[in-house]
Every structure is written in structure tokens, then in C-alpha cells.
Computed example of a mutant assay.
Amino acid sequence: MDLRVRGDVPADPFLGAADLFETECDLDLPVYVDVRTDPDERTWAAHYEDRHVLNISRQAATSAMARELVVHELAHMARNEEGHASHHLKTEEALFLALSGESVERRKVAHCYQIANHMKDIYADDITLSVMPSEKLVSFLESELARAVATRSGPAPWPESRRVTAGSDPEITAVNAAFALGLVERHDVISRDHRLYDLAHAAADDAPSVDLDAFKRRFRSLGDDPSDSDYRKTLVDATRAYVVGESGTGMAAD
């Protein structure tokens, strides 16, 4: 893998992430890492015809989660290169189909983008969790959900890879909790008495309009390699379930 770090930060987390990633995958295009000064930006990937760009804040690049963050973004790049539907379907297209004729609050539209990003994250983390242990990711999800349940205000992104984050309002916090449970159940990495379940149910109690279990199933049961039309329908169904309470079809049962 051709990975080049452009910024005054230790290279070890990036090189370690590349080594881990290459045990299962590789990238055809070079990866340029740009270190940013804004600590709130964390990480996001951009894709071009001749390269990928990993944008990462200095704070994230020097954190205990640096290697894990980089592996996660490399996984997004791999999904992009393979042409996976989740990483090529334009989110706006699905949201237009889902919300046509509806009057939707701006915050809920933003939440719908976050749901779409959660679905992308599921597919990226299918790769992430195939190359590295799950413990640090689970601890991160747990700590961020605990913070979100405690604060219950404001937006919640990991940019472009938007995970559970402190400060969400109750409705999207409940969806974030469903994402966390869907991911860990999809990979069977925690027991049923893990604290993440208690936190998720606390989040659900604060947002009775959100069906935690239904959203958990949506995330957990995403098909490995959906067609563009199947993926579009899945995202449309999830969007309508969040905004107008329609359950959609095709969800796997518990």
C-alpha cells in the first residue's frame, strides 16, 4: 500500500494500520493523509480518480484510537474501490425518494444522512473487524453512547464515518444505539449482559418514537453485497421508518 502522511505527527499508527489492513485487503490507489488542526473534524475519507485522501485531526491522529480510526477509513476506501453499492449510491437520491411529499424538519434530514453513514460504516467495519480485535471499538462505542445518553443535545458525527457520539438529541441517539448494537451483534463480539445493552435501552426510553429493536435489525441484517436497487430500497425504508414511522419490508426477524 502506498500511504503518505502529510503532517507533523508520528507515523507509527498509520503504518501499523496499513500493516493490519494488508493482512486481508489492499488498495490500488495511493492514500494521502492530511492532518488537520480542527479537533472536531476527527476523520473522513475523500475519493478521487487517482488517489484517496484521509483527513484526520491532529487530536485523533495522536489519540489512543488512531490506529483503529485509520483502519476504519482504509476500509471505506476499499469499499469505494470495489464499487460497493453503499459507497456509490448517492444518499440524496434515496432521501429524495423517501421524503418526497413529506414536510421534514431540517434536523431530521441531517439525521437521515447520519443513518446513511451508519449503513456505510456497517460495511466498512465488516472489513475493520476482520483485521483487528474488537475490544477498543466496543469500548469506544460504549463510552460515546454513555456520553450521548448523559448529554442529549446537539449533533453527533464522526465525519463521513458517523458513529455514536456525545451530544446527540434523543431520537438520533436511539438510532446511534441501534447502530452500535447492530454492529456488535452482526460480529458477535459482546455478551448479552454487556453494558452497551443497558445504555441502548436508556437511549430508547428517551425516544419512544424510535423502534430500537427494529433499527438494530436493519443494521445487523444488511446484506453483504446488495445490488444498487436493493441497497436503495433498504436506505429508503430506513429513512421512512425514522421520519414517518413506516416499518418497510424485508427486515430479518430476531
Rank of each mutant, 00 (worst) to 15 (best):
A180E: 02
P133I: 00
V149D: 00
V189F: 00
V243L: 02
S247I: 14
L181Q: 05
G182D: 00
F215Y: 07
L145S: 09
D121G: 14
G167F: 09
S161T: 13
A150N: 09
R152M: 13
T165R: 11
R220D: 02
A203D: 03
A166Q: 04
T128M: 11
F219Y: 15
P157F: 06
P226N: 05
S221C: 09
S143I: 07
R220H: 05
P157S: 15
R217Q: 12
V138A: 11
A241V: 04
D125K: 15
G223K: 06
V175W: 00
S221A: 14
E171Y: 08
M251V: 13
R163V: 13
A124Y: 01
A156P: 13
E171A: 12
V138H: 09
A156W: 05
L199D: 04
D224E: 11
D228V: 15
I172F: 15
N176T: 11
T239D: 02
I172N: 07
D198G: 12
R217W: 06
A150T: 12
H194K: 02
A203T: 12
P133K: 00
E142S: 07
Y242G: 00
L145W: 12
A156F: 07
V138G: 13
P170H: 02
D230N: 07
K216C: 10
A252D: 15
R163I: 14
A202W: 10
I172L: 10
V184W: 01
R147S: 14
D193T: 05
T234Q: 15
L196S: 09
Y242V: 04
R152S: 15
K136A: 06
V149Y: 03
A200C: 06
P157D: 15
M132H: 08
P208R: 06
A252T: 15
P170A: 10
R186W: 12
P226L: 14
A214M: 07
S139K: 13
L129C: 05
D213F: 12
A252V: 15
S229P: 04
D169G: 03
L199N: 08
Y231D: 03
I122M: 15
A156V: 10
V184Q: 05
A207Y: 05
A174N: 09
I122A: 01
T239E: 02
S247W: 11
S227C: 08
D211P: 00
A148P: 03
A207P: 07
G248V: 02
D206W: 00
E160P: 02
V243Y: 14
A203V: 01
P155I: 06
